[in-house]
Design a protein around this nucleic acid. Structure first.
Length: 788
DNA sequence: TAATTCGCTAGACCGA
DNA sequence: TCGGTCTAGCGAA
C-alpha cells in the first residue's frame, strides 16, 4: 500500500534477531512504521582479508556473541583519495564497537548512531513528505521525498507546586496548578477561582487527568516548557505516579525519557516533540539573538518581545494556595504559559529550519550546540559525496590540540579621542568567504606546487577539486544570498517571510560556525592548518586594506578582525577606495560599507601606569542618530544598572548633543541620588554567572561570597547560576559586603560611587578633558569634587 | 562530552 | 599600604 506522510524522527528497535528502524511519520496523525535495516561500518583491509573478517566474532558485555554478517567490497573517498574498503555488516548496532575492537585493521564510521546512519543513507529530511510502500506496520520501500511545508502546532505549559520548604519536594509536595497555551489556553487546579479560564477539579489526580485530556484533545506536535526538562515534566511524572493518575504527555502511554546530550539535559516524550526553551534560550543567547543578563522566563520574554512580564514571588506560592484566594496565582500561571508560547513561537521556526538544513530531527536540534549542528551537516554531506567520515579524536589528540592553539585575528590599537566623520566598512562573512575562496579543507591540503593557493603561513591548498568544507559552505552562503533576495520582494507580515527569514538566519548561524569548528579540538574535521590559514588570510586581507587606505590618504582609526574605521572628508573618497579594494579581492570576498558616522568616541585604558587606546571599546552615532556601542561597561551584565544607565546617558549627551555640560549634569544628579540612598537595590544589583559550584572556588569573589551566604540560608545554588548581588554596608572587604539582591537591606554608597559610577563615567569624561586628578580634592580644573 | 582567539576589567591574593 | 600577578567573567569579532 502506497502511503504519504511527513517524516518527523527515527530511532530503532531490536526484535528477536533483527533490527528495525522505527520512523515517526505524520499523515493524518502521527504513527510509527518500521523498516528493516542493518548496521555496518568500514574496514581498511585488503580484499583478500574478506573471508577472515567475515568470520570475526566477539563477546559482548551481556554475553552475546557478536558476529560479522557479511562483507562487501566498496570504493570510498578517504581523505581526498578513492580507496577500496570493506563494508562489514552485523545484526545489531551494539555489535559494531565490539567487532571494531576485534578486527586488527583500521576501521571507519563505527561510531555513527544507527538511526542517524539510516537517515543519512536515505537522505531523509525532517518535515519532508515521504512516499513509501507499506505492509501493515512495515515499510517495504521508501520511494521519494520532497521538502514541503509541514507546519508545527505547539502547546506551551507551566506548573505551580506547593512549596512550604522553599524548593518543592516531588515525593511529598503536590502540584497545585497546570496552565497551558496552544490553540486554547487555560488553567486547571483544584481550588475555587472566579477566573473564567480556570477549570476546577477535586484533587491533584483529577487535575493531572484533565491536563492529559487537554493534551490529547489539542494533540500538538510540540510541547514546550521553560526548564521543563529539569523541572516540570519530571515533577508531573512523579506526581502522576504518586496519585496513580491516568496521565502521560506523549501521543502514546509511556514514561518520559531523560536524554543527556553533553551537559544539556533533555526529556523525550513518546511521539511528541518536547522542547525545553531554557537551554534553547541559552543557545540563542550564545548566538546573539537573545540579549539578556539572566535566563529566567521573565528576562528572556522581556528581551525577546520588549514586553514586561509580571512576576510572582516563587517563595510565596504555597502561602497564596493556603489562603484559598488563588485568582492572582492563576493569572500569573496563565501568563507564564502564554509567554512561554510566545518564546516558543520565536525559537521553533529557527529550530525547524536548522532541522531541515542539517537533517537532524527537531528534538536533537533543540539540544545541540553550534558545533554539533555543523558536524551533523558535514556528516550528511560526506556520505552524500561518498566520502568517509573522519573519526572522533582520541583524548590524547584532543589534549595535544588544546595545548597548541592557533593565532587569531588582528586588532589595531586605536588612538583615543572624540572624532568626527568616521566611515566603517567590513568584510562580509570574512572567514566563510576565505574558506570558500581558497578552498580550505583538510583533504585539499597538498604538497603540489601547481594550481594551489598558498596561505600566508605556507600551507598549500589545491584549487580543484572543491573540498568538502568549502563546497558545503558555499551552498549555505549562496542559498542565503538567494533567500535574502527573495525576502526583499515579500510582504514582511506574511507567513512566507517569517519562514524564509528564519531560514536565512539559520544559514547564517551555520556558516559562521564553520571556522570555529575547524579549530575546535574535539571536531572530527579539526585541522590546525585549515584554522590557522583561515585567520592568516584574514589578517593579510585586513592589513592590506589598511595599507591601501593609507595610499588613498585615508587615516585608519581602528580595525578589528574584519572591519576598518577611517576618517574621511568626502564620502566619495571612501567609496572610491572601496572600489579599488574590491577589484583586487577574490570573487566571494567583498568589503562593504557599514555606515558613515558623524561622531564617535574611543577611550583609553591603563597599562602599567600608562594610558593607551582601548581595543574593543567604542561608541558611534550614525546619520539617523542611532548609537552603536561596543565593549563599554554599559553593555556588560556584570556591572550595576545604575552605572550602566548613567554611562549610556553620558555617551548619548556627548554623541547626540555634543554637550559636556549635560553629561556632567547627569552625573551630578545620579551622585546626589546615590548619596541620599534613593537608588533602588534592583538598580545596584550586579549579575555574574558562576561556572562551578560555589564551594569549589579558591578565591572568594563577591559573587561567590554572596552565593555561599545564601547557601547557608538554605538556597540552592548550582553551577551555571546567575548570581545577582548588591554590595551592602555590612563588612570589610567587598566580598564580605556582598549579599544576594533578595537579602540586601542597604547599599554601600562609597562602593557604588568609587567602584561603579565614577570609573564608568570617567572613561568617557576623560576624553572631554577631565583628568583623574580632578576627582581629588583641590584639583585645579573645574573640580568634579564639588559634585562628588 | 558546549565553535574560535583577542582583549578588558574586577577583586583577591601575595610579598615587600 | 602599595603594586604586581592571578583567577574569572564577559564581550567583540
Amino acid at each position: 500500500m502506497i502511503k504519504k506522510a511527513y517524516f518527523i524522527d527515527a530511532d530503532y528497535v531490536v526484535h528477536k534477531e533483527d533490527v528495525y528502524i522505527r520512523l515517526y511519520v505524520k499523515g493524518k496523525k502521527l504513527c510509527r512504521v518500521y523498516y528493516k535495516y542493518e548496521p555496518y561500518f568500514y574496514v581498511d583491509a585488503p580484499s583478500k582479508e574478506k573471508e577472515t573478517i567475515a568470520r570475526v566474532k566477539a563477546q559482548t558485555k551481556t554475553g552475546e556473541t557478536a558476529r560479522v554478517d557479511r562483507v562487501e567490497e566498496v570504493k570510498k573517498i578517504v581523505n581526498g583519495t578513492e580507496k577500496k574498503l570493506l563494508r562489514v555488516y552485523c545484526k545489531k548496532p551494539s555489535y559494531v564497537p565490539e567487532l571494531k575492537a576485534t578486527i586488527p585493521f583500521n576501521c571507519y564510521e563505527y561510531s555513527i548512531p544507527f538511526a542517524k546512519r539510516f537517515m543519512f543513507d536515505f537522505e531523509l529530511v525532517p518535515f519532508s513528505l515521504i512516499t513509501y510502500d507499506r505492509e501493515g506496520k512495515f515499510i517495504t520501500k521508501i520511494i521519494k521525498q520532497k521538502e514541503t511545508e509541514m507546519s508545527l502546532s505547539v502547546l506551551a505549559f507551566d506548573i505551580e507546586t506547593y512549596n512550604p520548604r522553599g524548593a518543592p519536594r516531588e515525593q511529598i509536595d503536590p502540584a497545585i496548578m497546570i496552565s497551558w497555551a496552544g490553540k486554547t489556553k487555560g488553567v486547571v487546579t483544584y481550588k475555587e477561582s472566579k477566573r473564567e479560564f480556570v477549570t476546577k477539579k477535586n484533587d491533584e489526580k483529577e487535575m493531572l487527568e484533565e491536563f492529559h485530556k487537554v493534551l490529547q484533545k489539542e494533540n500538538p506536535d510540540v510541547i514546550a516548557g521553560y526548564n521543563s526538562a529539569n523541572f516540570d515534566l519530571p515533577y508531573l511524572e512523579k506526581r502522576t505516579e504518586a496519585t496513580k493518575a491516568e496521565c502521560y504527555f506523549g501521543m502514546w502511554p509511556g514514561k518520559i525519557k531523560g536524554i543527556n546530550k553533553g551537559l544539556i539535559k533533555g526529556v523525550k516524550t513518546k511521539g511528541r516533540i518536547h522542547v525545553d526553551l531554557y537551554p534553547a534560550a541559552r543557545f540563542f543567547g550564545f548566538i546573539g539573538l537573545v540579549k539578556t543578563n539572566q535566563y529566567t522566563l521573565e528576562a528572556v520574554y522581556n528581551a525577546l518581545t520588549g514586553k514586561q512580564k509580571k512576576m510572582v514571588q516563587r517563595l510565596n506560592i504555597w502561602e497564596i494556595w493556603d489562603s484559598n484566594s488563588i485568582d492572582e496565582l492563576a493569572d500569573y500561571s496563565l501568563m507564564d504559559a502564554t509567554s512561554t508560547l510566545e518564546i516558543a513561537n520565536e525559537f521553533l521556526p529557527i529550530f525547524r529550519e536548522l532541522s531541515i538544513i542539517t537533517k537532524m530531527p527537531l528534538f536533537d536540534v533543540s539540544l545541540s550546540t553550534s558545533g554539533q549542528l555543523v558536524e551533523q551537516l558535514l556528516m550528511f554531506n560526506s556520505i552524500k559525496r561518498n566520502m568517509i567520515i573522519p573519526p572522533k579524536p582520541h583524548a590524547g589528540t584532543i589534549q595535544e590540540r588544546l595545548s597548541n592553539p592557533i593565532q587569531g585575528a588582528y586588532v589595531k590599537l586605536p588612538q583615543p579621542g572624540i572624532y568626527e566623520n568616521i566611515a566603517v566598512m567590513d568584510f562580509r562573512g570574512l572567514y566563510p568567504s576565505i574558506i570558500i575562496s581558497y578552498n580550505i579543507s583538510p583533504e585539499t591540503i597538498t604538497n603540489d606546487d601547481e594550481n594551489v593557493n598558498v596561505s600566508p603561513e605556507g600551507t598549500k591548498f589545491l584549487k580543484k577539486p572543491m573540498g568538502l568544507i568549502p563546497s558545503v559552505l558555499e551552498e549555505l552562503v549562496d542559498y542565503r544570498t538567494e533567500i535574502k533576495k527573495k525576502l526583499k520582494k515579500i510582504d514582511k507580515d506574511s507567513e512566507e517571510y517569517k519562514r524564509l527569514y528564519a531560514r536565512q538566519f539559520s544559514l547564517k548561524i551555520l556558516a559562521n560556525s564553520f571556522y570555529g569548528f575547524s579549530a575546535y579540538p574535539r571536531a572530527r574535521w579539526y585541522s590546525r592548518e585549515c584554522g590557522s590559514s583561515t585567520t592568516a588570510w584574514g589578517r593579510q586581507h585586513i592589513l592590506e586594506t589598511i595599507e591601501e587606505a593609507g595610499k588613498h590618504g585615508l587615516e585608519v582609526l581602528y580595525s578589528d578582525t574584519d572591519s576598518v574605521f577611517m576618517l574621511y572628508k568626502k564620502k566619495d573618497e571612501v567609496l572610491q577606495f572601496m572600489e579599488t579594494v574590491n577589484k583586487k579581492l577574490p570573487e566571494k570576498m567583498e568589503l562593504e560599507l557599514e555606515a558613515f558616522y558623524p561622531r564617535g568616541v574611543f577611550v583609553t585604558k591603563k597599562i602599567g601606569g600608562k594610558e593607551v587606546g582601548a581595543k574593543k571599546k567604542y561608541a558611534l552615532i550614525d546619520e539617523e542618530g542611532r548609537i552603536k556601542i561596543r565593549g563599554f561597561e554599559l553593555v556588560r551584565r556584570d556591572w550595576s544598572g545604575i552605572a550602566r544607565r548613567t554611562q549610556r546617558r553620558v555617551l548619548e549627551a556627548i554623541l547626540k548633543e555634543g554637550s559636556k555640560e549635560k553629561a556632567v549634569n547627569i552625573v551630578q544628579e545620579i551622585i546626589k541620588k546615590l548619596k541620599e540612598g534613593k537608588v533602588e537595590l534592583e538598580d545596584l544589583a550586579i549579575s555574574t554567572q558562576i561556572s562551578k559550584p560555589p564551594s569549589q572556588y579558591e578565591i572568594k569573589s563577591p559573587e561567590i561570597s554572596a552565593a555561599l551566604k545564601a547557601q547557608k540560608r538554605g538556597i540552592e545554588i548550582q553551577k551555571g547560576s546567575v548570581i545577582r548581588y548588591v554590595v551592602t554596608k555590612n563588612g570589610k572587604s567587598i566580598s564580605e559586603k556582598a549579599e544576594l539582591l533578595e537579602y540586601a537591606e542597604n547599599y554601600d554608597v562609597e562602593y557604588y560611587l568609587n567602584n561603579q559610577l565614577i570609573p564608568a563615567v570617567m572613561k568617557i569624561l576623560k576624553e572631554l578633558g577631565y583628568q583623574e586628578e580632578d576627582l581629588k580634592v583641590g584639583g585645579k580644573q573645574q573640580s568634579l569634587d564639588s559634585f562628588f
